[in-house]
């Protein structure tokens, strides 16, 4: 493990401060997708970026934004590498990121050791029965919410509805 220099740490912070193009309330650092910044020489930087989902189309916009920010900070050449391993998990979203998601009206993912869909009991649309930890409504905080669709506006979200305030909301689902 090579110790990061002060400049590398500074560049990592800068790259991490770029807002997510899909969820601009979150920074890439809070989303947990910027893995490392290495200096190849005085003004050449290499950034390791990991996608949330393999097919996430936002990764190209993220790369361009990181390149721009680091260039503005004096880097002449910036290469953004996409790294798949270790696979990104919603557990990589920081506590601050979770709080911001909730404020933005998106229920944050539940923290868990293993990922994958939570086994659900089947009802007409009610699917909260078998879940271990409820997904709280980001609007009114109620725990009584139901799943409407496993896939919402983007692959990383599910569509739910609050049974208390009746508002539909997105849930950043656990991966």
């Amino acid at each position: 493990m090579v110790t990061a220099t002060a400049l590398e740490a500074e560049l990592l912070e800068l790259a991490g401060s770029v807002p997510d193009p899909e969820l601009p309330v979150l920074t890439l650092h809070e989303l947990g997708v910027v893995r490392a910044v290495r200096l190849r020489d005085a003004d050449t930087a290499e950034v390791d970026l990991t996608p949330t989902y393999t097919g996430c189309p936002a990764i190209e916009a993220m790369s361009l934004d990181i390149e721009r920010v680091l260039r503005e900070h004096g880097m002449r050449e910036v290469t953004v590498r996409t790294v798949l391993s270790p696979a990104w998990s919603t557990d990589d979203i920081s506590p601050e990121g979770r709080r911001k998601l909730r404020e933005f009206g998106i229920a944050p993912p539940r923290v868990r050791g293993s990922s994958g869909p939570v086994p659900l009991a089947l009802g007409p649309t009610r699917t909260q029965a078998a879940e271990t930890e409820p997904v709280h409504c980001p609007h009114c905080g109620a725990a009584d919410t139901e799943l409407l669709s496993r896939f919402s506006s983007t692959a990383c979200k599910a569509l739910r509805r609050c049974l208390s305030c009746r508002e539909p909301f997105d849930h950043f689902k656990e991966l």
Binding site: P51, L84, F151, K173
Partner: peptide, 8 residues
Amino acid sequence: KAVKEVAY
């Protein structure tokens, strides 16, 4: 990565 996506 795929194994987590495909689970859904």
